[in-house]
């Protein structure tokens, strides 16, 4: 068991929200968000990126993959070749703008699925581990240590060499390497909550363990896991980019932001925009996700910190409480 990490989980993530206040908590969050300019901007940017990348690829997928060698590395900010080439052309003369849209969709898909997968599996294992305790707990925590001890990049490198890189394999590998985080967070929360009065009461009333876990503990662990998952979205996108750099990312014509940054890097001195725009988009998405996650943590735990909440809105909040 890693004592250090557990304490961190306690220190840096929110204490569970009282179930009775969940509804009002959500409303409070919305109200706070509307009054905090930076998190609001982050949320809007993120939602906009998500909407565009979900809807647009259906219409532009073919145009995005169309090669035109006469447009090879054509410079950005020129409208003479049509709006698709406003961000320039890539090494095969495909329109950068459309490639970016398709790539963002893939990146978000990979991030969402792998984060979702590891959050779901990880927190389920963590819950069971924390609630059951005893040798099951010890065993599961050793397992978590095993995955945690292996450098995630090397683990992914070896696995992807064996399995050959594809979107599915990438998602599974990324999910696997991030599993311990959720296991730890969920377990720490479960340990704390299972001693609480209402859980004891449930037990006394004869509820089965899985029922207690599902009905009583899960809702209280969920917000914390969600906050962590939000933060992980950024990490996963960055890690996928790192894998592309090492040559085990996606295989063209599949394209995500990572492979765009990684393959464009070779042209850094000749055509900066080929790697700059996808890189910028990675930073923007990761930054927005980071800001939101940070802010979520802050509003759930106003005593600890309240990043980006304007002084005025915090004062209002305190008054209204």
């Amino acid at each position: 068991m890693n004592m250090a990490q557990e304490l961190v989980a306690g220190a840096t993530t929110a204490p569970p929200v009282d179930p009775g206040r969940r509804g009002s908590g959500r409303r409070r969050r919305t109200r706070l968000l509307l009054r905090s300019p930076l998190p609001l901007t982050a949320a809007i940017v993120l939602v906009a990126i998500m909407l565009v990348s979900l809807i647009a690829p259906a219409f532009i997928a073919d145009a995005a993959q169309r090669q035109d060698l006469t447009q090879r590395l054509s410079p950005p900010f020129q409208l003479s070749d049509g709006f698709a080439f406003v961000l320039g052309g890539d090494t095969l003369g495909r329109p950068m703008l459309l490639q970016l849209v398709v790539a963002t969709k893939t990146s978000l898909l990979i991030a969402a699925l792998s984060v979702g997968l590891s959050a779901l599996v990880g927190s389920a294992i963590g819950l069971i581990s924390g609630y059951t305790g005893g040798w099951v707990d010890a065993l599961i925590m050793r397992l978590s240590d095993i995955i945690h001890t292996l450098p995630s990049l090397l683990l992914a490198l070896v696995i992807l060499y064996v399995l050959s890189p594809s979107i599915t394999n990438l998602i599974v590998v990324l999910a696997l390497t991030r599993l311990p985080i959720y296991m730890r967070v969920a377990r720490a929360q479960a340990l704390e909550i299972r001693e609480r009065v209402f859980v004891e009461a449930s037990k006394a009333l004869g509820s089965r363990p899985w029922r207690i876990m599902l009905r009583d503990i899960r809702p209280m662990v969920a917000p914390t896991v969600l906050t962590v998952a939000m933060l992980e979205v950024a990490n996963v996108i960055l890690q996928a980019a790192g894998l592309s750099f090492l040559g085990v990312g996606l295989q063209r014509p599949d394209v995500d932001l990572g492979i765009m940054v990684a393959s464009g890097r070779e042209y850094l001195s000749e055509a900066w925009f080929v790697t700059f725009f996808p890189g910028l988009l990675v930073v923007v998405i990761a930054l927005a996700a980071n800001i939101l996650s940070n802010w979520l943590r802050a509003v759930d735990d106003p005593g600890q910190s309240a990043l980006f909440v304007s002084r005025k809105s915090l004062r209002d909040e305190e008054v209204s409480r």
Binding site: L238, G242, G258, V261, R265, G279, N290, N294, L307
Partner: peptide, 21 residues
């Protein structure tokens, strides 16, 4: 705000990209 924004931005840059630039 500047420090928080800056530090979050730091954690959001792909490391190999930063290295090559």
């Amino acid at each position: 705000k500047l420090i928080t924004f800056g530090s979050l931005a730091c954690a959001s840059i792909p490391d190999f990209w930063f290295a090559l630039v």
